[in-house]
Design a protein around this nucleic acid. Structure first.
Length: 495
RNA sequence: GGCCCCUUCGUCUAGCGGUCUAGGACGCCGGCCUCUCACGCCGGUAACACGGGUUCGAGUCCCGUAGGGGUCACCA
C-alpha cells in the first residue's frame, strides 16, 4: 500500500465535541498504526459561522487529548482558487454546466413534489442548453449555478466501504448537483474533494452521515481524473433517545473541554471514546497508547450506531458511567508522579496548592494521593472529597455529620479525649493509633467504630475514606489533634 | 416519502453455520474483607426485534415485516 494519509477536517463552528473527537481518534490511530500522516484541515468556507475562538478550541481539545497531527492546520479558505479552477475545468471538459434556473422556481417545484409525495430531483432543464442559449443568458447577465453532469446512462457508482462493505448507488438516484453557487462560491462537496486530492488523502474515515455524499464525491474524483481514496464510514453516536448528540440538545456533556474541567485524564476519555463503536475482537478494554495503536483496525469498527449512555438527571453519573469507570481506573493505576502533575492544576485553581508539594512535602503529597485516590473518580475529587488533606476550610459531609457524629453526643468529649491520647504518643503510628482508639472505645463501653468514624467525620469531613489509623499517622499531627479537639463546634445547636 | 445503512443483556460489545443451555465490560443486586467507604475477589440479574425460508444444524446465510438511523440545500 502506498503512503497512508488521513485527515481530520472540522468546521470551526463550535467547540470540539466527543463525536468529532472520536472521528479524530480513529483517524489518528489509523495513521499511527500504518506509519502514515494525519492532516488537520480547518473547513472554514462558511465564513458566517466560523470563528477564531472555535479554531482555538478545537486545537486545544486535540492537544489535550494527545492527538497530534503531521501537517496543518490548513485552511480551506486558502485554497479558494483551486476550488474555482476545478469548477472551471469541469465546465471546460463538459462535465459540468451552467444552470440558470432560479432559486424560487426550483423551490416551488420541490415544494410541489413534497406536497404530492413525489420524489424530487432537478429535472436537468439547463443540461442541454445550446451554446447560443447559454451565451444569450450570460449576455443578459442572468445568474447561474454550476451543476455536475451525472451520467445519464444506466449504471451505478459502486465502492467498497472499509466499514459498511459494498455500497451501490445508481446514477438515476443522483441528481445533477450544484457544485458552485450563483455567487461564485464552490460548495463543500467539490472543495472537500479538491482538498483531499491535493492533500493526497488515502483514507477518508468519517461519520456515516457522510455516506450519502460519497457516490457524488466519487463522481467528482473521476471527473477530475483522480483515484478515489478508501472510504470508511464509522457509526454515529446517539443519545438514549436515538437522537444525534449535539451541543444544542445536550450541552456541555458532549464537549471535550467539559471532561477536562471535570477532571478527566485525557487518555481515559480517548480510551472510552474508542470503545464506542469499536472493539479489538477480544475482551481487552483498557489500552496503553501503544497497545491501542497495535490493536486498532478499521475492521473492528461496528456498523451500528452506538449510544452515549448519559442520563441527564442522574445525580450519580454526570456522564456515561463507563467513561467514569475508565477514568477512575486510570486515576488509581497511573504512576503517582504523573497523577501529582495532573492534580496540581486543580488544587491551584482552588488556591489550596502548596509549592512545597513539589519540594519538601513531595513525598507526603504523593503518599496522600495514593491513600485517597482509591475511591475517587475524577481529578476534581481531590479538591472536594479530598479537600481536608490540603486545607482546613473543608466542610463536613452532611451524612457523616448526622450518622457518625451527632448521633453519638458523647463524642463531644470522647474525641478531644482521643486527641489527648494521641498527643501523648511520642509518634503517631498506625499501630499505636489503633491501640489508643480501641482503648478509648473500651473505656467508654462502645464499639471501636463509634469514635473512629466520628474522628473520620471531623478530620476528613467524609463518611468514607482510608483506614483512620493510617490517617492519624499520615496527616499532620497538629491538624489531627486540633480537629479532634474542636469537635464540640459541630454540636452547636442551631435555632 | 425516495434512496442508503443498521438491529445480541439497560449501555458498550464478543460472536464471522455446530465448541452458544450466547462470553466480557459498565451499571444494578448479594457476599467476603472491614473502623467506614473504595479497591480486590466470589456470586447473581439481564439480550440474539419479529415472521418465513435455506440447512442434518442459524445469533451467524437469504427474503419479508417492524423499529431505528442517515441523506435527499445555491450548509459543512
Amino acid at each position: 500500500m502506498s503512503e497512508v494519509r488521513v485527515r481530520f477536517p472540522p468546521s470551526p463552528t463550535g467547540y470540539l465535541h466527543i463525536g468529532g473527537a472520536r472521528t479524530a481518534i480513529y483517524n489518528w490511530l489509523f495513521a499511527k498504526k500504518h506509519g502514515g500522516k494525519m492532516v488537520l484541515r480547518i473547513e472554514d468556507t462558511d465564513a458566517e459561522r466560523s470563528t477564531e475562538e472555535s479554531i482555538r478550541g478545537i486545537i486545544d481539545g486535540m492537544e489535550w487529548l494527545g492527538l497530534d497531527w503531521d501537517e496543518g492546520p490548513y485552511f480551506q479558505t486558502d485554497h479558494a482558487e483551486e476550488h474555482n479552477a476545478a469548477a472551471v475545468r469541469l465546465l471546460a471538459t463538459g462535465q459540468a454546466y451552467k444552470c440558470f434556473c432560479s432559486k424560487e422556481e426550483l423551490e416551488a417545484r420541490r415544494e410541489a413534489a413534497v406536497k404530492a409525495k413525489a420524489d424530487y430531483r432537478y429535472n436537468g432543464a439547463c443540461r442541454d442548453l445550446s451554446p447560443d442559449e447559454v451565451a444569450a443568458r450570460e449576455a443578459a447577465s442572468a445568474p447561474f449555478v454550476i451543476r455536475f453532469k451525472v451520467p445519464r446512462e444506466a449504471g451505478a457508482v459502486a465502492f467498497k466501504d472499509a466499514v459498511c462493505g459494498g455500497i451501490e448507488r445508481s446514477y438515476q438516484d443522483i441528481e445533477d448537483f450544484v457544485i458552485v453557487r450563483s455567487n461564485g462560491q464552490p460548495l463543500y462537496l467539490l472543495c472537500n474533494v479538491v482538498d483531499d486530492i491535493r492533500d493526497r488523502i488515502s483514507h477518508v474515515i468519517r461519520g456515516q452521515d457522510g455516506l450519502a455524499n460519497t457516490p457524488r464525491q466519487i463522481l467528482l474524483y473521476r471527473a477530475l481524473g483522480a483515484q478515489p481514496p478508501v472510504f470508511a464510514h464509522m457509526p454515529l453516536t446517539l443519545d438514549l433517545n436515538k437522537a444525534k448528540i449535539s451541543k444544542r440538545s445536550h450541552g456541555e456533556v458532549v464537549a471535550v473541554h467539559f471532561y477536562r474541567e471535570q477532571g478527566f485524564i485525557s487518555w481515559a476519555l480517548v480510551n472510552f471514546l474508542v470503545l464506542l463503536g469499536w472493539s479489538p475482537g477480544d475482551d481487552r478494554e483498557i489500552f496503553s497508547q501503544e497497545e491501542l495503536i497495535e490493536a486498532f483496525s478499521l475492521e473492528g469498527i461496528s456498523r451500528a450506531n452506538s449510544i452515549f449512555n448519559y442520563r441527564k438527571d442522574d445525580p450519580k453519573f454526570f456522564t456515561d458511567p463507563k467513561a467514569i469507570n475508565i477514568n477512575a481506573h486510570y486515576l488509581r493505576t497511573i504512576p503517582v508522579s504523573e497523577l501529582a502533575t495532573l492534580v496540581k492544576p486543580f488544587l491551584e485553581q482552588e488556591k489550596i496548592w502548596d509549592p512545597a508539594y513539589d519540594g519538601d512535602k513531595k513525598e507526603w503529597f504523593e503518599k496522600t494521593l495514593v491513600m485517597i485516590r482509591e475511591r475517587f473518580h475524577t481529578l476534581k475529587d481531590f479538591t472536594t472529597l479530598g479537600r481536608a488533606w490540603f486545607a482546613d476550610d473543608f466542610t463536613v459531609d452532611d451524612k457523616a455529620l448526622q450518622k457518625n457524629l451527632l448521633k453519638h453526643p458523647p463524642l463531644k468529649e470522647w474525641l478531644p479525649e482521643l486527641a489527648d491520647r494521641l498527643a501523648a504518643l511520642p509518634e503517631i503510628t498506625p499501630e499505636e493509633a489503633e491501640r489508643v482508639a480501641r482503648e478509648l472505645a473500651e473505656a467508654h463501653g462502645v464499639k471501636p467504630g463509634v469514635p473512629i468514624n466520628g474522628a473520620r467525620a471531623v478530620i476528613t469531613g467524609q463518611i468514607k475514606g482510608p483506614s483512620m489509623f493510617e490517617v492519624f499517622a499520615h496527616l499532620e499531627r497538629d491538624k489531627v489533634i486540633c480537629r479532634l479537639r474542636e469537635t464540640a463546634k459541630y454540636f452547636v445547636v442551631e435555632s
